[in-house]
Nucleic acid binder design. Sequence first.
DNA 1: CTGAAAGCGCTTACAG
DNA 2: CTGAAAGCGCTTACAG
Lengths: 321, 321
Amino acid sequence: MVTIRDIAQRLGLSTSTVSRALNNNKRISLKTRRNVKRTADLMGYQPNYNAKNLTNREANTVGVVFPVNNRVVDNIFYVGILRGINAQLNSRNYVLSIAIGDSTQQVIDNVKSMITRAQIKHFILLYSHQNDPVIEMLQKEDVDFVTIGKPAEGQKWLYVDNDNVKAGFDGTNFLMDRYQSQHPVFVQTHNNWPYEIDRGEGYKKAVDEAGKSPVILSTHDNDDESEDDFIRQNPQMDSIVAIDDYSALQMYHRYKMINPDKDIEVLGYNNSLPSELTDQHFHSVDIHPDEMGQSAVKLLLDKPADDEKMLDHIIVGHAIV
Amino acid sequence: MVTIRDIAQRLGLSTSTVSRALNNNKRISLKTRRNVKRTADLMGYQPNYNAKNLTNREANTVGVVFPVNNRVVDNIFYVGILRGINAQLNSRNYVLSIAIGDSTQQVIDNVKSMITRAQIKHFILLYSHQNDPVIEMLQKEDVDFVTIGKPAEGQKWLYVDNDNVKAGFDGTNFLMDRYQSQHPVFVQTHNNWPYEIDRGEGYKKAVDEAGKSPVILSTHDNDDESEDDFIRQNPQMDSIVAIDDYSALQMYHRYKMINPDKDIEVLGYNNSLPSELTDQHFHSVDIHPDEMGQSAVKLLLDKPADDEKMLDHIIVGHAIV
DNA sequence: CTGAAAGCGCTTACAG
DNA sequence: CTGAAAGCGCTTACAG
């Protein structure tokens, strides 16, 4: 293993100078810096992260925290985010560690150990829940974190999110403009997640601007009957904006069972279904998980020289596919 | 931050003794060991992993490698495995790092850096492809690894897998025994993944033992027509064993379109669908991703004292749900 | 612009 | 059974 000591000896320099040169310290002449870097490459030098982290009293690691209770299908989304996070981390010579568990206590212990034993100072949370014990802990510790999803009213921390009002608005308009839908309906759950509320807002705004009235169904899991009732009671409906792809697919099938000969356009969110399950009447809003992950890293690690320019959130665009 | 030095001073011992005591070194008297551990807890001592890893020349980290090109839906499975891996790692005071990227080169660079810079010596691969450049690299380096899925014929390394022949056999018998299916068919893809071949074997064995003939459909993505043809040409079929849940769901819907009034039982693999999309005619074989993750860690880190007992793989059970 | 020295928090070969 | 000392590979305050 090649160390800075080896490079120093080869060049007749001190390890101090080599260390500074490799870290691009301005106190070392440009000439020396270049020379050291060239030699380091030549010798196949690889910095030892453990030594670096020990002296820096801080790991070059970002801890990514999974929610405890998530729907299995959300995993699709999480892995997309991981991909984006890691792309950015690699180019910064950072490492990605994850905290995941079956209970809050497990995750808390995991994160605590990351902070105190592994000296990790940067975290990304794949969720943004209210009164979350992990978030409360991170706020007390001397560490930075970013959540995927905005904090609830009255709370404040770094976050990445989509513009879900706009995503609801755009989705609805897509169905009205592109498919001449006259009666788009909106399907959500009883969970009232922030993104559901926002997309519902966008939906209402779009139908309102088109001079139509909103029609909204709130479903529970697996409640085929109330869905069927809704479909029968709204014979005029000709398109569906559903809160996610699974809800969209479910509604599509219920509709087709009841009206086998009528066509309907459906739109969901997350672009998470395999092509086997969909057809040309099925649309989805891709909320760009990869970009959300990348943005989270930028927010977390790119501290602008100018403090004024410090961002406290990044909004990632969406696309209808 | 409490260090072993602080503990040593408080107890009037040397750091050597404290270090050995904490590592449960037999050379230290049981009394001293107990005393040191008690005091360490009392003082809230937390070992510094970076220091540990620097001296040990090896990180207490397992690197988990994602496949480059995977179906989005497989992410569900991967996160389940991660959960199992991390449960085992936490109790061993190990950390989970991941390597994930959009190209083979990215992943290779990522893993190389984990080996040389982060000093990671243990890897788990979430896949088991033939002629995989990452696997070939790991074999050359001085590191241990385990794959999820068995290696191809002629290759040999540590792995965790299901008994997919049995999973095909059990799934088929479930439909025949429990639902009196007379004509179960098998649906696979043209990819011929090892697990498809094995489950197909199991299916054939089951129908053969029941004195029936196998009927098999190989589909391409999104080929509704050939599926419809198949359904029409096999009017006697009364149950479907599909290679995964998505294929099962797709077949179920095609069948219902063609035969709205007939019932059929379908069985898929992975237990990956949200309950909204399924009903009582839908069954799935859970292949226990959590347990696969846990087994992978055991295989990787638990070196038996007796070399004879060294396992080279673990087969994880499945359950029909 | 560069260097000698100390230190980060551990482990372990050597000595007693 | 325990300890003094060296070392793992870096960074940085201090000095010149």
